[in-house]
Write a protein that binds this DNA or RNA. Structure first.
Lengths: 228, 228
DNA sequence: CAACACACTAAACGCGTGTTTAGTGCCGCG
DNA sequence: CGCGGCACTAAACACGCGTTTAGTGTGTTG
């Protein structure tokens, strides 16, 4: 397998990049160049020599994490549940820094975060489409909005819980938090998803009547394509 | 009304505190003492003279925001929807910095954030209880978990959307983002809340069977107290 | 009136930051 | 062998940070 306490057999630039990803994941993007250099057993100057700037180092890290995620994703067989994916990612201790890095990116709100979320929404949408075709999921009046809603909601819940339990801190804890939150979350989620929350549809029909002729809202949707 | 371009008639310490809240809300807690001092038209030394330390200044801000929120809350008539409350808070331009400050706290994850969330969960729980008694909301097998799930989910969705649309940045934008997210969110939310997401209960009943004799999970709950 | 207390400022201190500069040793190529 | 290029380091630079220090004016109090 790749990297198992591997330190020496990597080029210095790669060691710096990996150390940076680890530091960024555990301490956030305020981690200093000197700390990263120390982790990579290298002088601070070399970091700049190879990457030019701390910001450019971060860009390289973003790109690398993005690649790693794409690889891991195909390995994990495209899990569509937003939580499940991060959880599976964090489970393999090798990939734990990746999950931490993504979490940091999400709260920091950079380019990587936007891309990650968009992919997540895409995954959820296709998953819902397939499940709907299979007859296990109800059709929606606005499938795009529903996919986005479910993805953002799940990721948001996760993030919320993560940096409430004392920040991202140690990477190993991340997996624990992820499984814990899915543990107490599944019951209410399943309840609402199968039985709903409200007893009647006065609110929904009221809302539908209210927006009747108007544009529903954002997100390119297809109004109602099937009535069934 | 309180404060309307009021600058001079406040004590210097109060001006510093207000400036700090504004800066923290728009730039996060890395805003410098010198910036805050400049905003309050005061020397950096005076900030420390009055508050001793930047951290203690932040504690004072936390406390003040906490108070302001409690006041605003009773004014707004205890809105239980997590989003609605923040939205109403941000709508009054006077309170906009408060909402920004809370958002910053939530992503930074301090004490204030934990307290705010706990209050939010409480509000949602009592709201659900009342609605359940009124017959508009279905009973849950674990009301505590459901309240926490709904609160964290709503807040998380909100946060996610806020710092994806370019950070908290300008306070006036915050209200816009809040109304925008509620706009495209209400349809999928109402759909799921009234009709559910799944077509049958195999997943739910399967899960219930699976955890059958075991402890459900976290959060002190009362197992199933009513079967109905 | 003298004396103390207090709000306040200007300037500096010490530190950590990202980055630059000058220099050293090694490695491959002509 | 000689020499250019490259990875790399040690030291320093410039800067912004939170905080400290010394000092000034002002209002209150004995």
């Amino acid at each position: 397998m790749r990297s198992a306490g591997a330190d020496q057999d990597l080029t210095a630039a790669a060691r710096i990049r990996d150390a940076a990803i680890r530091r960024f994941a555990t301490q956030g993007f305020t981690a200093s160049v000197r700390q990263i250099a120390a982790d990579a057993e290298v002088s601070p100057g070399l970091v700049i020599h190879h990457f030019g700037t701390k910001d450019r180092l971060r860009e390289v890290c973003d790109a690398h994490v993005s690649d790693q995620i794409r690889v891991a994703k195909t390995e994990v067989l495209t899990a569509a549940d937003p939580g499940m994916f991060l959880s599976a990612l964090a489970a393999v201790t090798d990939y734990a820094p990746l999950a931490g890095y993504v979490v940091r990116s999400l709260v920091a709100g950079g380019d990587l975060a936007a891309r990650f979320i968009e992919h997540m929404v895409d995954d959820v949408r296709t998953y819902l489409q397939e499940a709907e075709a299979a007859g296990t999921v109800r059709p929606s009046r606005d499938p795009e909005a529903r996919a986005r809603y479910l993805a953002l909601q799940g990721l948001g819940l996760l993030l919320m819980q993560i940096n409430l339990s004392g920040g991202v801190e140690k990477a190993t804890d991340l997996a624990a938090v992820l499984t814990a939150v899915t543990a107490w979350t599944t019951l209410p989620a399943l309840e609402i998803f199968t039985e709903g929350l409200l007893t009647d549809n006065t609110l929904l029909s009221g809302y539908l009547a209210h927006v009747g002729g108007n544009t529903p809202a954002r997100t390119p949707s297809s109004d109602q394509e099937e009535q069934r």
